[in-house]
Design a protein around this nucleic acid. Structure first.
Lengths: 209, 209
DNA sequence: CTCATTCTGTACCGATCGGTTCGATACTCA
DNA sequence: TGAGTATCGAACCGATCGGTACAGAATGAG
C-alpha cells in the first residue's frame, strides 16, 4: 500500500484523509470517558469526532478497537500521572503522585469526572465484555506495576522491612479507584484532595495483620 | 381496584399473578448487578425472572423502576452491611463493619463481583442518565450517613478531638468503593480483606492537613 | 351462570443498535 | 493526462433496543 517502504513520511496513494486522526481519537476518548463503552453509540462518537461512520471504520476498525485506542491515549494523557508517579524516587513520592494525580485527573475542568479505566466498562452485558476485559487487564496491570515499585522500595530500605508490597499496592490502588468513583459522584476536587492528604499524612501504613 | 379498601390482605379481583414478584425482583437484581443498567436488556432480565415482558411491565412499570426496586432490594440484602455497620457502638466498629462488609458483599460466591451501587450505572449514555443519578444519590446518601455517624463519634469522644468527620467518611467510603472496583476486577476476597485489615490496623488515621 | 377485572403469551411497534455497500471524489504515480 | 487507490457521504443492512396492543385465560363479585 505504501509506495515507498523505505520512507513512510507521506507518499500514500489515494485520496488523503480529511481529518486529524489523533484529534478525532481525543474526541472519542472524551465520549467513552463520559458515557462508558456501552453508553457511547457510534452516532455519539462520530458526531463528536466530526467524521462519518465510514471514516471511523476505515481509520480505527470498529468500536472495540476505537475504545482500545482511546484507552491508550488516556494512559498517555490524563492517565499519564501513573507512569510518572512510578518513576518517583521514593515510595512516599510514588504514593503521593498516584493519589494527587488521581484527584486531579478525575476532576479536570472540561473533562468528564472520574476515570476512564474504571467507569469505561465496569459491568457490561455480553456485547461489551471484551471492553470490560480490556479495562480489567488495564487496572490489574497498573496494580502489578505499583506492587513491583513498592517491592523495589522495600528492597532499597525505602519502606520498613516486613512491608508487604502487594498489600500496600492494593491499599493505594483501592484509594485511587475509590477517589475515581467519588469524583464520578460529583464530589469536589478539594474534598478528594483531603482524602489523598489523609493517606499521605499517615504514610506508610503498617501492614501487619 | 381493590375490592376491600379496608383490608388489602388479598381479595383482588381478576386473574392472580402467576409468579412471586419478590423472587423475580431478586433475579433481576442479579442481572443488573452483573451487567449494569445499560448492559441488562429486557430480554436478559425477563428471561432471568422467568416471566414475559408484559408481566414485568405490569408488575414493575418499566426498566427504570425495576432498577430502582432492585437497588432497594440490594440495600436491604447484600448491601445491608452498611446499615448494620452504622449501628455499631464505636467509630472503629463502624469502619470495621463497612470495610469487612464491603469485602464480603463484593466477593460473594454465586453473586456478581463488585457492588451494584457502584457498577450498576457509573457512566452512561443519555438513556441511562436517570439510573446513574439514582446511584449517585444512593452513594452520596451513604456517605452522608457515615459522616453523620462519625460526627456523633467525635461528639462522644469516641474519635480524637479535631477529627474531621466528613473527611474521615470520605476516606472510608473511598476505600469501600475502591474495594468494590478491585472485586469487579477479579481480585480475590483474601487480598481485599488485607486492604480492610490494613486500614483498621492504622485506625483512626490522623486527619490533620 | 354472567360480568368486570387482572394477568399471561404472542406478536408486533418505531427507533436505534453496530456495521456495511456503493458511487462520487480527491489524491499519487507513471 | 489516465490508471490506480484510498477516503468520503449517504443510504442502507439485519438485529436488537425498550415498550405495547390484543386476545385468551383465570379469578372474585353478583
Amino acid at each position: 500500500m505504501l509506495v515507498r517502504m523505505d520512507d513512510g513520511r507521506k507518499a500514500r496513494a489515494g485520496r488523503p484523509r480529511g481529518f486529524d486522526a489523533e484529534e478525532a481519537l481525543e474526541r472519542a476518548l472524551v465520549v467513552f470517558w463520559r458515557q462508558g463503552y456501552e453508553g457511547a453509540t457510534l452516532t455519539d462518537l462520530t458526531r463528536a469526532m466530526g467524521i462519518t461512520r465510514t471514516s471511523m471504520y476505515a481509520a480505527f476498525g470498529n468500536k472495540e478497537e476505537l475504545f482500545r485506542r482511546a484507552l491508550d491515549r488516556y494512559s498517555e494523557g490524563p492517565g499519564g500521572y501513573v507512569a510518572r508517579a512510578l518513576e518517583e524516587p521514593t515510595a512516599r513520592a510514588v504514593a503521593a503522585g498516584l493519589l494527587n494525580g488521581a484527584v486531579r485527573a478525575t476532576t479536570r475542568p472540561g473533562c468528564p469526572a472520574g476515570c476512564l479505566g474504571v467507569q469505561g466498562a465496569l459491568a457490561t452485558g455480553d456485547p461489551g465484555h471484551r471492553a470490560r476485559d480490556v479495562l480489567i487487564a488495564w487496572r490489574n496491570d497498573a496494580g502489578s506495576r505499583v506492587a513491583d515499585r513498592f517491592r523495589r522500595a522495600v528492597a532499597e530500605g525505602d519502606l520498613p522491612p516486613g512491608t508487604d508490597p502487594d498489600r500496600l499496592s492494593r491499599y493505594v490502588t483501592s484509594l485511587v479507584y475509590g477517589i475515581s468513583v467519588q469524583a464520578a459522584s460529583g464530589v469536589a476536587r478539594d474534598d478528594l484532595q483531603q482524602v489523598a492528604d489523609t493517606v499521605l499524612r499517615n504514610w506508610p501504613p503498617a501492614t501487619g495483620g
